[in-house]
Design a binder for these strands. Structure first.
Lengths: 231, 231
DNA sequence: ACAAACCTTACACTTCATTTGCAAAGTCCT
DNA sequence: AGGACTTTGCAAATGAAGTGTAAGGTTTGT
């Protein structure tokens, strides 16, 4: 997949550490900008051009908590706080004010990246942010984790729901077995692993039953599957 | 005077300053009591016999913020914080935790009195600030930390109240276990941590009992929970 | 010191993911 | 076309994971 890099904003007064982190994030495929003061941080965070903010709560000339609050008043951009090791108060207050996660300093860059990814992967924070997928009479609401055909709920398991979401997002594209294995099961596909086939089979039956045979999971032999809806 | 004087509680370890303030307030027609330690402050504030509390956030042997939180968990008596001149953190945290106003030290007694009067004049403090959540006959007032079904108070513990608030704010969205662990317990969820489940279970029983089975915490298997109200 | 609140543990119970086995369908080759 | 091989569909079996809640231990606030 070559999606454009995600923009990350770093707000931390320690220029050296920030620089190192920025380089690391760069290597992980993120596009970073670092600022070192509160006013810069405020302006940048509110510009709306970042996909996530990593925010040190200890900032000179003002408190990161204030900034956190300011941002949350306006935007739902994901925020990860950097907190002192043992400062429970900061942590609790930060989460209360809407931070999405925290990482204690000093941190391992890989851990930070993992949490960053987790936060970015999370369904949009506000229900109104309209993550509604549709295809014919099929509707899927990611935040509510609800899927239905013509208003009638489909009773799907977690895996089936995720599978349907991936297929739906794929649009006309064929979702390959390898891709599905990675995104659905979170592991590389081994030979003789029939797990995906079974999930496809189960989902297929539910979809066809609910839609009166009008919604199909079409097989593309040797490649994968694709959703198709009959007129 | 024909109206009884309003009772004001002062919590501050500086006996001299407190004494002066008490005399000043006396002259303005308030009845004061001053205490100088955290335990005394707690007991007095929770006794319910004061109309307002003036609370120094810097107290020996414990943090005024803690006391603030304790008081707010039980009572919505107006609270004015005394903070160090430049300490924004204390201010933000204090207001967030439900203080009604703050005054930076050193202060002018007349200013303090003005704010005190303003705070006492305001009966429905947070009601207008839209911190009133509803869902069917369920009502939750975050500022007063009061929740009820059709006017009847639910007797919730602190954790249960917070849990309900989070679920309620989530709206139709499913609140995930990870999210709840972060927001509710202020820590990440470890494997085999069943704490959340237990709180859900307890809250669920109280809600269903009070609502006559009309308010449910619906389980979304493998993901989390969502509030649902039957028509 | 006491009680309330909270956390942990344990266990019964449900539901689901994965494995397995085999049949059916598709592909390739001669 | 027909046989050999590969891939897919699916039912059934199995074991792992998720859930609800009672009970007991620990912490915390008063």
């Amino acid at each position: 997949m070559d999606t454009p890099a995600l923009n990350i904003l770093l707000v931390d007064d320690d220029a050296t550490l920030t620089q190192m982190l920025a380089e690391y994030l760069d290597g992980e495929g993120f596009a970073c900008r670092a600022v070192h003061t509160l006013p810069e941080g405020r302006e940048a965070a509110l510009s709306g051009q970042y996909d996530a903010v990593i925010l040190d709560v200890m900032l000179p000339g003002g408190n990161g908590i204030d900034l956190l609050r300011t941002i949350r008043g306006i935007s739902d951009v994901p925020i990860i706080m950097l907190t002192a090791k043992s400062n429970d108060t900061e942590r609790v207050i930060g989460l209360e004010l809407g931070a999405d996660d925290y990482v204690a300093k000093p941190y391992f860059p890989p851990e930070l990246v993992a949490r960053l990814r987790a936060v970015l992967r999370r369904p949009a924070r506000r229900a109104s942010s309209g993550d509604h997928l549709r295809l014919g009479a099929l509707a899927l609401d990611a935040a509510r984790r609800w899927a239905g055909w013509g208003g009638m709920a489909l009773e799907l398991t977690v895996t089936e729901f995720n599978l349907l979401e991936i297929l739906l997002r794929g649009g006309e594209r064929v979702s390959t077995k390898d891709e599905l294995s990675l995104r659905l099961l979170g592991r590389r596909r081994e030979s003789y692993d029939r797990s995906i086939d079974v999930h496809i089979s189960n989902l297929r039956q539910k979809l066809e039953r609910a839609s009166g045979e009008r919604l199909h999971i079409a097989t593309v032999r040797g490649i994968g599957w694709r959703l198709e809806v009959a007129p």
